[in-house]
Simulated scan of single mutants.
Amino acid sequence: MNDRPDSLADAPLGRESAYPEQYDAGLLYPIERAINRAPLGIEEDALPFVGEDEWHAFELSWLNARGKPIVAVARFRLPASSPRLIESKSWKLYLNGFNQSRFASTERVVRVLEHDLSEAAGAPVGVEVFGVDDPVLTPRALPGESIDEQDIEIADYTPSAEHLTVGEVIVEETLHSHLLKSNCPVTGQPDWGSVMIRYRGPKLDREGLLRYLVGYRQHQDFHEHCVEHIFTDLMARARPERLLVLARYVRRGGLDISPWRATPGEWPPSPLRLARQ
């Protein structure tokens, strides 16, 4: 019996797959964002946030015109306003198809990636390709203050916005936690991550915030939707003037995903990568 959501009925995720040896744009498997946004009350024509899904591909390789392998790291930026996200295993299979395919130049590879990913997502996708020793890939630390050292007892591992409470003092601060964990909605595999929250508004109770974030530990959802869930809960419970939620998930299968969602006018720090990514 197939108990997958309809949007994943034919996806390669959770299935045995043959790894391609030649380029094939048809391997990309788009998923409508509206399916998971509807339960959060998010309407596609009136998004309550701006944002992007930033991906890094650490296993990108192709052959040059003479058959010599080239290896690189790619950064992709998929707009949160795109009608579709792209399922991660299909993305991995698609990139593997480059391994034995010849391209005349790196610029040509970038153009092909931009075209195919934009077609799948339904919106322009930004692509950058770096050499494996490029200093831009050097790991950095998340900005702000960690809330992980609180000595609290936790027994609830499902996300509950009831944990989110605020005081009367208006503050502007950046907080982060490395205790984020959710699970793949199809395979149940763990997805480890870190989350940063920057806001201006009534001061968040840090104990409650940590309980809330740890609540995702047994939650099954895509990375992108976890971030949107956190954003909408914080907006509803804390009502900040400004808010940015950014998650940086540990790579799996050579890909990491780092979604961010924010109130208009807010932007994340310059591209950063954590040591465990």
Rank of each mutant, 00 (worst) to 15 (best):
R75M: 11
C226H: 02
V71C: 12
L272Q: 14
A9D: 06
S146G: 05
L13D: 13
V136R: 15
E168S: 11
V132M: 14
D191T: 00
E43D: 15
E241N: 06
W267E: 15
Y249F: 15
G14F: 00
W267I: 12
I154E: 15
P139N: 11
D116L: 04
L142W: 01
G201F: 00
S82R: 06
S177A: 07
W62Q: 10
R273P: 08
T263Y: 02
L272I: 12
L13C: 13
E241D: 09
S7P: 01
V195I: 14
V129Y: 10
E114N: 13
L28Q: 02
V245S: 04
D133C: 12
F49W: 07
D133R: 09
A120C: 01
E153H: 08
R102V: 10
E162L: 10
G131R: 11
M196F: 05
E59L: 03
P269L: 05
D156W: 06
F130S: 11
L209N: 06
H219K: 08
W260S: 01
Y19M: 14
G131K: 04
A141C: 08
Q220H: 11
R140M: 09
L95F: 03
I35M: 05
C226W: 00
G167S: 02
E52Q: 14
A11H: 05
S82D: 10
Y212Q: 14
E16S: 13
L60V: 13
A247H: 04
A80K: 01
H56A: 13
P135A: 13
I86G: 00
V50M: 05
R211H: 09
Y216C: 00
L204C: 12
R102T: 11
A238E: 09
D221N: 12
D191W: 05
R75G: 03
A247D: 02
V127W: 04
E87F: 00
T174Y: 08
D256H: 03
V71R: 13
I70E: 15
G122H: 09
E145W: 02
L63I: 11
T106A: 15
E59T: 08
L63M: 09
R206I: 05
S101Y: 08
R15W: 01
Y19Q: 15
N99T: 13
P69M: 10
S194K: 01
H176T: 03
F130R: 04
A155F: 08
P185M: 02
I152N: 04
